[in-house]
Computed example of a mutant assay.
Amino acid sequence: ALAYALLGEIGGRATHHGVLQVIAVVVAAALFGAVPHVALGKGPALDHVARRVLTVGFAAVCFQPLYNSGKLGEWVGHGPAFAAVIVALLVLTALCDAVLAAAMAHTRTLPHGLKGMGGTPSPFGPILKDELRAMLGIGSAVCATGAVMALAVAVAGLWALPVFSLPLLLTQLSFRRYAAVRTTYRQTIASLARATEIAGYTPQGHARRVAALSRAVGRELGLLEPDLAVLEHAALMHDIGQLSLLDPVPAGATAALPEAEQRRIALLGGAVVRQTGVDGDVAVVVERQADPYRDQPLTARIVRTANAYDEMARGEGPGGPLNALERLRLATGRDYQPEVVEALARVLARGK
């Protein structure tokens, strides 16, 4: 789609197609590509289709009028300067796509664990940073391929399309395998997180709620996606050490246990996480749940605060959440980082 938006010639002959034609072709191609998914009962994600069309339309608006009017040729010619202009347009297009992606993510509610609390948009700044970081990987490869395809078709004609499409197809298959591995990884973590619930050591949905709250607080504090992933996985598995107990803690409330017992459970939980092959950073967060908060990494402080809030707020009636938050604030000098507690308060306030 980017190659078509930046196409000015086919085998040395001018194309003269305009912005509206580019948009129409991209929309038609997106609908045609969605047919197999619809046949399998999986409709296309309309927000992704709209983002793709808007991004390609932006590239076409920047390139086609200048090229068709001849001004681009007058200004830079058809040598290295022309390629530099294409690269500059692709950089602007990538920025446009990142802003669109961040805006769409900003309007979505929190993960499922907080939907019952009303949901709240994530801060725009950290989301945009994540999108820009992602552009350095697959985004730069997509942009570079689009530019090279457009330049190759201008010289070699339409035969350049199948030459470039085959590597793209292989890349897509590899990416799908990678996505399948990631899905299996997340399912393994979710299954381990449910083990304590199935065994009766923690209440139903506790790990999921703590994970959703932790991720929201991490976003509020400006953590980027890699740290948010570690935070979410650690929050899901933070109670796994309770499986070592002979008798379950009432309601799974480990925050009320003696510090030595909390530390033993945390270390056992970290040992279990390390044996599963999960990222070692996740195990560190789980192991350090019972340490003094000043000695913990920020991710561990967030999980500890979210866990304590969920334990305190559950079963205290309508005033439970407010009372729990007040208790956390009173304990900020000893057990919880004040900035984390206030970030949690902002997340909860927006979720009402």
Rank of each mutant, 00 (worst) to 15 (best):
G277T: 10
R51A: 14
V85P: 04
A101L: 07
D97S: 15
T107L: 01
V340N: 06
A190C: 10
V87T: 13
V49W: 02
G319C: 01
V49H: 04
G137I: 09
V99E: 00
A60D: 03
A253P: 05
A144G: 15
T107G: 00
W75A: 08
G8K: 04
E316A: 06
A156N: 08
A101I: 00
Y185C: 09
Y4M: 09
V272E: 06
L132N: 05
A251T: 06
L169S: 05
V142Y: 14
R176K: 09
A29D: 07
A283E: 08
G79Y: 11
A266T: 08
L31T: 04
V56E: 07
A103W: 00
A216M: 01
E287P: 11
L223A: 01
P248L: 11
D239C: 06
L89S: 04
L158R: 14
G269E: 05
N307W: 11
P292S: 13
A255L: 07
R219I: 01
A101H: 07
A308D: 05
A141Q: 12
T107C: 02
L31D: 03
L213M: 00
G12Y: 11
A156P: 05
A308I: 00
R350S: 00
S214N: 02
G139D: 10
T55F: 04
Q262C: 10
A179C: 10
G113A: 00
D227G: 12
V27S: 08
Q337N: 05
M312L: 15
Q64F: 08
G57T: 05
V303A: 11
L348W: 00
L325G: 03
A156K: 14
D310M: 01
Y201G: 05
A283Q: 07
P111T: 13
A39I: 07
L89V: 07
A193S: 14
A134T: 08
A195M: 15
L95G: 02
E259D: 11
G79D: 04
V56R: 05
M104H: 12
D279H: 15
P297N: 13
V87I: 13
L132H: 12
A1V: 08
H17G: 06
N323G: 15
G222C: 05
R219A: 01
A179K: 15
L2R: 14
H238A: 01
P248Q: 03
A160F: 13
A234R: 14
P258R: 12
T15K: 09
L325T: 05
A349Q: 02
A212Q: 01
T276D: 00
T120A: 15
L344T: 01
V230I: 15
H112S: 13
T145S: 14
Q296D: 00
A180D: 12
A256L: 08
F82W: 11
V249E: 07
